[in-house]
């Protein structure tokens, strides 16, 4: 063993009053956190609290919203008209999500497994337009699909029929939603396909014969996480969207988003709008928790 030097051996062997270094460090990180946390509390959390509070409020005779403790707004929501609209919104969002998934798989598959060196370029070609103005793209569809728009004039000119009414139909609204949000499905599915071991697919082809059965029994389970993520990323914004229904639809196809928007910027009934917003968030949370539970169980069973 090491011989102890007598001069140093007498040094006190005890902790040196606390932990100065890590203390200094933790303070730095805490200081970094303070400002953004304060910001989020001031501008995000507090705004959410106000929405919840105002949902119990009322509108004064002069149109001013004031805080109160009434349940009137929620009672008002329990109206067949609103319930139908809520169900319509959910069904549009579900349809949008399903179509996005069906569309995303072949596209992501081709890019991920057959994209070769242009893989990144192709993904960029998908991403770039989606981050370009959603409003302009919705407007473009409304111009293209209008009764005297390009699509209809082509139909007439090619003698395919007497023109089709696209706008103001659920198809147009759902189509707009798909167009608006499909990228949020493609990206996670693409990432999952990228990570997937392609030898699995080959093994599947040997085992199951035929691409369809291989897809169902190999590719889909292997990319489940990406699909689940994409479903969330599409469903959430689609349910709250109001631009697609505003520009491509009409009153018959309005969604919750249009209703809320009306309360705030046209109807000027903010307390009712707040209650609708809270109700939508509650509905969303319930759907999401149910969905997350279901997918979590499914993933556990799979592994």
């Amino acid at each position: 063993m090491t011989a102890l030097d007598p001069t140093t051996a007498q040094l006190p062997a005890q902790p040196k009053g606390g932990t100065p270094r890590s203390g200094q460090h933790t303070r730095l990180w805490a200081a970094l956190l303070a400002l953004p946390t304060g910001w989020m509390v001031a501008f995000f959390l507090s705004s959410m609290v106000i929405v919840v509070l105002l949902s119990f409020g009322r509108t004064q005779a002069d149109g001013q919203p004031v805080f109160s403790t009434r349940l009137d707004n929620y009672a008002q929501l329990w109206d067949p008209l609103y319930l139908r609209l809520f169900l319509r919104s959910v069904s549009y969002a579900v349809a949008t999500t399903a179509i996005c998934a069906v569309l995303a798989y072949p596209v992501a598959y081709v890019v991920a497994l057959h994209g070769g060196r242009r893989k990144n370029l192709l993904i960029a070609a998908i991403v770039v337009p989606f981050f370009a103005s959603y409003l302009i793209r919705m407007y473009a569809w409304s111009a293209l699909l209008s009764d005297d728009g390009l699509v209809n004039s082509l139909i007439v000119r090619l003698h395919l029929g007497g023109g089709v009414q696209f706008l103001n139909t659920p198809y147009a609204v759902i189509g707009g939603l798909v167009y608006g949000y499909v990228v949020f499905m493609i990206l996670p599915v693409y990432a999952a396909l990228e990570r997937m071991d392609t030898s699995l697919i080959e093994a599947g082809k040997d085992l199951y014969h035929g691409p369809w059965r291989t897809f169902w029994s190999v590719t889909l389970p292997a990319t489940r996480a990406g699909l689940f993520g994409g479903v969330l990323l599409v469903f959430l914004p689609a349910l709250g969207d109001f631009v697609s229904a505003q520009l491509l639809g009409g009153p018959k196809t309005f969604m919750i988003g249009n209703l809320i928007q009306q309360q705030f910027l046209e109807g000027q009934n903010w307390p009712l709008g707040s209650a609708m917003t809270v109700a939508m968030m509650i509905g969303l949370t319930v759907i999401m928790v149910g969905y997350l539970r279901a997918t979590a169980t499914r993933s556990r069973e799979a592994s």
Binding site: T8, L11, P12, A13, Q14, P15, K16, T19, R21, S22
Partner: peptide, 9 residues
């Protein structure tokens, strides 16, 4: 890493 006890020279 801070020692729990002891000294370093």
């Amino acid at each position: 890493s801070d020692p729990s006890e002891g000294s370093i020279m």
